[in-house]
């Protein structure tokens, strides 16, 4: 071994991002259990809801959509969004783990670009959402095929490109909640509090939205809450791609035509939310990075 050298050679931003992405992907693969368990809830919802409610929801759905549709097809976009929501939750938990294990500080003392540190971690979460939502999409098709023998075109009306679009909606949807769970992590600096804070929100958010049933058959107060619930916008965007038509009822837009009347306003609302909460998270991360002492 040689003696000490003058200075380490720092990396570029892209390289730093890649190094951090690799670390978090490696950590995720070390815990296939967590990956599986976090998919379990959405899968249970998908299977049980379609089996139990699928028999009675047909009328309401065809009335709302103006076309015959299987409840599986109707529900899959909601489960995709639920999957993104759960994945986003774990982002903050990972951050708390890093703070507790001292890795957070260790990384801050290294010459790595701080933006790249957080970008790399976020990209690993995006990757996970891609894998998990794809699994849900495939599983939904299997359920539909067993039931009706439907073709892929009858499952996702907008085809393969639409399926990719649904995964992309899952990613756009996840950003604001990822930001939220990271802010919770930095405020509480405690795994359990972070898990409780974000899990507490999961069920009310899901049920008080357009996720499981058309809003027009739900009570008025639920419709009111659903109109300001980000889940509604995520689910409606994914569902518009699923059916290839305008499915949004909380905001009436007619200027783009067809499914774009849903996609444009829904993605617009989500993007604004992503930016707002993203900015809050960046503020807290900056603060935590510049004074890491407890």
């Amino acid at each position: 071994m040689t003696g000490p050298q003058e200075k380490a050679a720092g990396n570029g931003f892209v390289r730093d991002t890649w190094i951090n992405l690799k670390r978090w992907v490696l950590k995720t693969t070390r815990n296939p259990f967590v990956m599986t368990v976090s998919l379990l809830n959405p899968i249970i919802f998908l299977v049980l809801f379609t089996e139990v409610f699928g028999q009675i929801t047909g009328g309401a759905i065809s009335q709302s959509l103006g076309t015959e549709a299987s409840y599986v097809t109707y529900l899959v976009p909601a489960i995709v969004v639920q999957t993104s929501l759960i994945a986003a939750t774990t982002s903050g938990i990972g951050l708390v783990e890093d703070i507790e294990s001292g890795m957070f500080e260790k990384v801050l003392v290294s010459p790595m670009h701080r933006g790249a540190v957080f970008l790399g971690k976020s990209l690993s979460e995006v990757l996970r959402i891609v894998v998990q939502t794809s699994i849900i999409l495939v599983l939904g098709y299997v359920l539909l095929y067993v039931d009706t023998g439907a073709s892929v075109g009858e499952y996702v009306a907008t085809g393969w490109l639409g399926a990719v679009g649904i995964v992309a909606v899952g990613i756009v949807f996840s950003v604001w909640f990822t930001a939220f769970s990271n802010v919770m992590a930095l405020l509480t600096r405690d795994q359990e509090s972070t898990i409780i804070a974000v899990n507490l929100l999961q069920f009310p958010l899901l049920f008080l939205s357009s996720a499981f049933l058309p809003l027009d058959i739900l009570p008025g107060w639920v419709q009111t809450v659903a109109a300001v619930n980000p889940i509604t916008y995520g689910v409606d965007a994914a569902r518009a791609l699923m059916f290839g038509r305008d499915v949004m009822t909380v905001v009436e837009v007619t200027s783009f035509g067809g499914m774009w009347d849903t996609l444009v306003p829904a993605l617009g609302v989500l993007a604004a939310l992503d930016l707002a909460l993203g900015a809050v998270a960046v503020y807290f991360l900056n603060r935590a990075s510049s004074s890491s002492v407890q």
Binding site: E6, K7, A8, A9, G10, R23, L26, K27, R30, N31, S101, G102, M103, E105, K106, V109, S110, P111
Partner: peptide, 18 residues
């Protein structure tokens, strides 16, 4: 400065999953 120093914090800082 960061490029030219090694630092070991008081609390052991390693990634247990790796």
């Amino acid at each position: 400065v960061r490029e030219s120093i090694g630092y070991m914090a008081q609390e052991t800082s390693i990634d247990g999953e790796l």
